[in-house]
Design a protein around this nucleic acid. Sequence first.
DNA 1: TATTACGTTAACGTAAGCGTCAATTATCAA
DNA 2: TTGATAATTGACGCTTACGTTAACGTAATA
Lengths: 132, 132
Amino acid sequence: MEQKTYTISDLAKEHEVTPRTIRLYEEIGIVAPQRDGNKRIYAERDRVRLRLAIRGKGLGMSLAEVKELIDMYDNTGRDEKKQLKRLLEKLQERRDILLTQRRDIELTLAEIDRIADKARSTLAELERAKVN
Amino acid sequence: MEQKTYTISDLAKEHEVTPRTIRLYEEIGIVAPQRDGNKRIYAERDRVRLRLAIRGKGLGMSLAEVKELIDMYDNTGRDEKKQLKRLLEKLQERRDILLTQRRDIELTLAEIDRIADKARSTLAELERAKVN
DNA sequence: TATTACGTTAACGTAAGCGTCAATTATCAA
DNA sequence: TTGATAATTGACGCTTACGTTAACGTAATA
């Protein structure tokens, strides 16, 4: 089975980030491309990890947190009990944070809808009053 | 109706931030306490805005974005059409972002549950095998 | 009165997350 | 061969969001 590969600008365009960003993520250890001379060759695995990283960032995680979490995704299997327990703890922590965030999003969405409704009705009044 | 007021450390403790943070938020315009001599006196309005700010931060907003959004919460009423339309646009933008975030949270939660299940069953196997 | 707690401003420090050159190399089409 | 295009490695700079002294004032309490 042939592996599909990507250049840095392939991934940059696809994810709407700059190459600089991807190189930074490599420095941190989020991606680990192969080399063809001095060109970086990214595998599907890198692509997935990049996507996960960007998603995590969008949720407010630091790159360090992102790396930790993503490494865990890859890490399943062949682990000692201690590692596995640690993994489960970490997952639980992140889960709690995500649940809090989801709740905060619901709260904020509700606020926004409330404000928007108000604004729309005020606007409608102005229209009726012909205050253009 | 008497107004309840708070000191900076009241709010700091309640929201688990340092006074330094609250003073920074004042500089930015998120809160605007009264003064008693050179002591800051926070009203309920400040408390609400601080809470909203912290919530927004937890969702990955910058303080500038937070301020913009919070100001809009306060701004309803006595507005011209143009302002109202601008407000509605901004609310829509933020709404879209929140919906994306919510979806990303669902995706991440699903991933976490998948990994956790796997880890738990691996752990159970190790237990059975008495590899302690 | 001395201590403790809490408040103030001012200023420097720092980690994160890139942007932005600069100087260079490699590739590919015309 | 000559550009044009894309890639590379530094290296410096910048913004955000605070932390962390320092140096000092005030107010209640022992």
